[in-house]
């Protein structure tokens, strides 16, 4: 249930938009992408990370009961509940519809209908990292696996696994095979 703590409010008299007490800006997607295209990789990462942390903070805050730790609430929540809150905060940021897939032990987030299109996949990648890191308190890395029309898949794992995935994708390896190798190696425990 979406509570008032995560309600996006528009104060027309004051000319303010707030989400859970935090001021927001409503900017055109084209304007944002123009800024994104002109920014350095470091600036992109700072911006994307900050955007994602805001999303993750709002989601964990809504999951936590009064006085409870938001991070623990996110970790102890069911996958459905956690995804619901993350997707709601993601949608309030105007970044599209967020879904979650499980490929073996790998978590794959799916962003559909983002107004930023393929040019915004890097922003989504970094924003997902920020959202999951803040919401869970764990260091998560995200890499985009593929984009099929309006849907893009993002793999969540550690730094080593995401780096290997990037290298394999650059060599043209199918991402599902890499996921299977990673999952198989972890299951055997002796690779």
């Amino acid at each position: 249930m979406y509570t008032n703590a995560g309600t996006l409010s528009f104060d027309l008299a004051e000319g303010l938009v707030r989400l859970g007490g935090e001021a927001r800006l409503v900017v055109p997607a084209s304007a944002l992408m123009a800024l994104w295209g002109g920014a350095s990789p470091a600036a992109r990462r700072v911006f994307g990370r900050a955007l994602g942390e805001s999303i993750g903070r709002a989601a964990a805050k809504r999951l936590a009961s009064e006085g409870a730790d938001p991070t623990s609430a996110m970790l102890d929540a069911s996958p459905e509940a956690a995804l619901s809150e993350l997707a709601a905060a993601w949608a309030l940021a105007g970044l599209g519809a967020l879904d979650l897939e499980r490929w073996g032990r790998a978590l794959v987030f799916v962003v559909g209908g983002s107004p930023l299109g393929g040019d915004g996949d890097e922003l989504c990648e970094i924003a997902l990292e920020g959202a999951l890191s803040v919401a869970s308190g764990k260091s998560a890395r995200v890499v985009r696996l593929e984009r099929v029309e309006a849907r893009a898949r993002f793999f969540v794992s550690n730094a080593g696994a995401t780096a290997r995935m990037r290298a394999e994708l650059a060599r043209g390896t199918v991402w599902a095979e890499v996921l299977a190798e990673l999952d198989g190696a972890s299951s055997r425990g002796d690779a």
Binding site: M74, L75, D76, A77, S78, P79, A81, A82, L83, R102, R105, A106, L107, L132, S136, K138, S139, A140, V156, S157, N158, G160, A161, R164, L182, D183, A185, S186, R188, G189, D190, A191
Partner: peptide
């Protein structure tokens, strides 16, 4: 059923054994 944190831990641990091996 597994919690979101458990699923996230499993995904974050992928490939760790590769690095140790």
């Amino acid at each position: 059923s597994a919690t979101f944190g458990e699923l996230l831990d499993a995904s974050l641990s992928l490939g760790d054994e590769d690095e140790r091996g």
